[in-house]
């Protein structure tokens, strides 16, 4: 297979574009897609300070790398979720990238700050792990951004992530969720920063290819808590269709943005106010994150009083100290 630009040996085929590229021209293609996403959706400019949520995985490290290469002021934010060796390894990858490129990395440490990890949050509130984890990350992305004066948070959600979420929402006709699904979630409150997804034009396979070509050492293993996650099921189903009909995921998500979303916009009419406990924006008197952490803390107290030892997960990362923020 030949690179469509230079006719040299191709290394990545992009079937949805009927194209194949060598390493150098694939990076050019990737850069162009990201630049187009940022400009078309007016995500941010080179004058903005962008906080990039970095997990140590391929998508977020690829995002941080491409933004940095394209000349954006991108600071990383790593959240220690306290998921044992998985968190330790993901932090090592993130810190190694930051160190190698001399870029600023902020760290929010859930076990240190809340005395328990996201798995305990999940158990205490009878949520699935991914739900407690997602809630914690969304809360901390915004809080850290506000505390440090960032105006925009960028996450590594790619085309496959967005298509899978949309597919799940469609299966259950969750139109309120669909109204909130977009490459840019604007700030609708002084303490709510804009959230953007610059990789929404990039397929998951392309994000991984970018990371490998760029020599980025990312965590390949899956989060142990994601086993059985619905998002994986939806991605598997969409990839079966994509194999037979290249471009299906792009058609589903980009088509939704162009033609579907206008039909459901306006259904998300919630009014934001300050959380009575932490001051972060919320639709209820006390925000979901405070309710979750307070309930988990209460359960831990009850267990202690009943004589059960609290599980040793301070640090959460196999005893390894996570760097200071």
């Amino acid at each position: 297979m030949r690179c469509q630009r230079c006719r040299g040996d191709a290394s990545v085929e992009v079937r949805r574009h009927h194209a194949a590229f060598c390493d150098a021209h694939f990076i050019e293609f990737f850069d162009r897609q990201v630049e187009r996403a940022i400009e078309d959706e007016r995500m941010f400019t080179r004058d903005d300070r962008v906080l990039v949520a970095v997990s140590g995985g391929k998508d977020s490290l690829a995002l941080w790398d491409v933004l940095r290469r394209l000349g954006y002021a991108a600071t990383g934010l790593y959240i220690n979720l306290g998921i044992g060796e998985y968190s330790a390894e993901s932090y090592r990858k993130t810190a190694a990238y930051a160190g190698a490129h001399g870029v600023e990395l902020l760290v929010a440490d859930i076990p240190h700050d809340y005395g328990m990890n996201v798995e305990e949050f999940a158990r205490a509130t009878r949520r699935v792990s991914c739900s407690a984890c997602g809630l914690s990350k969304r809360y901390l992305f915004n809080r850290v951004a506000v505390d440090h004066g960032f105006t925009v948070v960028a996450t590594g959600h790619n085309l496959d992530d967005e298509a899978a979420v949309l597919f799940g929402n469609l299966l259950h006709w969750q139109t309120e969720y669909m109204a909130r699904q977009a490459p840019v979630l604007p700030s609708t409150h002084p303490k709510l920063v804009r959230k953007v997804k610059p990789l929404y034009r990039i397929a998951e396979r392309e994000a991984a290819a970018y990371a490998i070509i760029r020599g980025i050492d990312y965590i390949v293993d899956e989060c142990p808590n994601s086993v059985g996650a619905k998002s994986l099921l939806y991605k598997e189903a969409l990839n079966l269709v994509e194999k037979a009909a290249p471009g299906t995921k792009q058609s589903l998500y980009w088509g939704f943005l162009e033609r579907g979303r206008p039909l459901v916009t306006g259904q998300d009419t919630a009014t934001l106010r300050d959380c009575a406990h932490c001051g972060q924006p919320t639709t209820t008197e006390v925000c979901a994150f405070c309710r979750m952490t307070e309930r988990a803390a209460q359960q831990m107290r009850v267990r202690r009083e009943a004589g059960h030892a609290a599980p040793d997960q301070r640090g959460g990362a196999a005893g390894e100290a996570i760097a200071t923020r």
């Binding site: 391929k58 792990s129 997602g134 590594g156 496959d160 991984a208 899956e222 086993v227 996650a229 994986l232």
Partner: peptide, 10 residues
């Protein structure tokens, strides 16, 4: 053969 699919909440 390296998987490219991540689950959960990215």
């Amino acid at each position: 053969i390296r998987p490219v699919v991540s689950g959960g909440t990215p």
